[in-house]
């Protein structure tokens, strides 16, 4: 159950974030909830990397070469890329929120409906 409890925890964090994205009106809360979802996915990737074996290692457990063992770290590399994408996303997202506030005087996403009228 070592792996499963981390995965279920990450699912809980992801779903709390999803609720925040769907149910809140303030654009900054929506962005914070998105960050929660990113973090949850990162946690799942790192947990997989620690507990689930890779095809290379499973095919030949006796092979302890550096290249074979590094395949176990793929999840951590994925987590690093998720962090980079999350940083780019939050910088652009907050830029959009501030531009929205300047032009409309609100950060309420249900007021940002120019294109639906």
């Amino acid at each position: 159950m070592e792996l499963e409890r981390f995965l279920v925890l990450s699912a809980v964090l992801f779903c709390v974030g999803l609720y925040g994205v769907l149910a809140r009106r303030n654009a900054i809360t929506v962005l914070m909830s998105l960050e929660l979802m990113f973090t949850a996915v990162t946690l799942a990737a790192v947990a997989m990397s620690r507990y689930v074996t890779s095809g290379t290692v499973a095919a030949d457990p006796g092979n302890m070469s550096e290249a074979a063992l590094q395949t176990l770290l793929t999840g951590q590399v994925l987590a690093l890329f998720i962090i980079v994408v999350a940083a780019a996303e939050i910088a652009l997202g907050l830029g959009i929120v501030i531009a929205l506030y300047r032009s409309r005087g609100t950060v309420d996403v249900s007021q940002a409906n120019v294109m639906s009228r």
Partner: peptide
Amino acid sequence: WRLTESLPN
């Protein structure tokens, strides 16, 4: 899950 813990070493 195909766990690393299940390998012999």
